[in-house]
Amino acid sequence: MAEKRKIDARGSFCPGPLMELIAGIKAANVGDELEVLSTDRGSAADIPEWIKKVGHELLTTTEENGVWHITVRKTK
């Protein structure tokens, strides 16, 4: 059964939100949803870029009080 997981990468300069997501996706099962929380403005661009390149599914991108919430689904 698919799970929903949260990756709290606020304040992460190193390894950073995208690297945290990559590690999270490796550990997840196909169909799982992962929500990344990031205070890095660049995440709104570089996470979707990587998701598109690898072929996972970008579900939502929202910003609230300086925190980006980016949700993706592992597809393979």
Binding site: F13, C14, P15, G16, L18, M19, I22, G42, D46, E49, W50
Partner: peptide
């Protein structure tokens, strides 16, 4: 390198 630049720290 895994992300879109040569190190995680910009």
């Amino acid at each position: 390198y895994p992300i879109g630049r040569v190190h995680s720290l910009e």
